[in-house]
Amino acid sequence: MAAAIETKQLTKSYKARQAGTINVVDHLDLHVEEGEIFGFLGPNGAGKTTTIKMLLGIIYPTSGEGYVLGKEIGDMDVHRLISYLPERPYYYEHMTGLELLKFYGSLFGITDKEKFVQLLEKVNLHRDMTKPISNYSKGMQQRVGLAQSLLNDPKLLFLDEPTGGLDPIAHREIRDLILSFRDEGRTVFISSHELSEVELICDRVAIINRGVIAAQGKLTELLKGGRIEITAEDVPASLLSDFNIVDANIRTLPSGLLLDMPEENDPNSVIDAIRAHKGRVISVVPRRKRLEDLFVETVSTPGVKS
């Protein structure tokens, strides 16, 4: 599949008075395929927004290469095919939702009022399109932002914290919209702190920490390595030594025994052995690895450049 975004050793450095040169983004190699929802994660100050700004041509890389939809970053032709929703966007508040779309549309040479209304319908704002944006709630402002980002029918959308600070209903509305973008064949590049949200909608993610990619890949692959907890009672002590499972933890509880083991192991053989020795299996609970676990593990791993 073709790459929607490709960076090779992309670096952005700033000179600090005392600390010398700081690499905010450090030799970044990123690969985002067309048609996927890609999550770009990282703690505050990790370099997420700087990377997006470089990809949009708003700031200039210190070194390295970057390609968006096959063209070098900064190419004005690409700007006709992409769109951007910044974190906590501010729009000219004297405008109404409809006027805002007219303004942004005019930057593309789009003057079709019907299209503006259709987009406002898509984000469920058509009833409020003649109200000034200053009267919009946070969720409505985010939705009008998404509407403006669809004006040019973009192939690639950059969404910076699209659900930041929104209530659960607005969260869900935005999430559904983002999923609809993928169904329409668009590529979505999301920078976010909302890990549960990302886990629900993203196909692949990259975790950036202090300017360096710490992990990148399919969510299904990155989240491998969950565990299974088997609780049982009346298990003879002699059986415990028979469990020859790598990386297993066995704890004795007042109610019995808790066996915690990697999900790669077959729990059936353990369950069969317990039953064969007249033990009773109380529960089998798979503990799936969550994105939050991966995130914390990744950003706190020693060796990741700091």
Partner: peptide, 12 residues
Amino acid sequence: RRTIYTILSKPV
């Protein structure tokens, strides 16, 4: 106010 980002991300 970051309005410049949405404008400069368009063909401007």
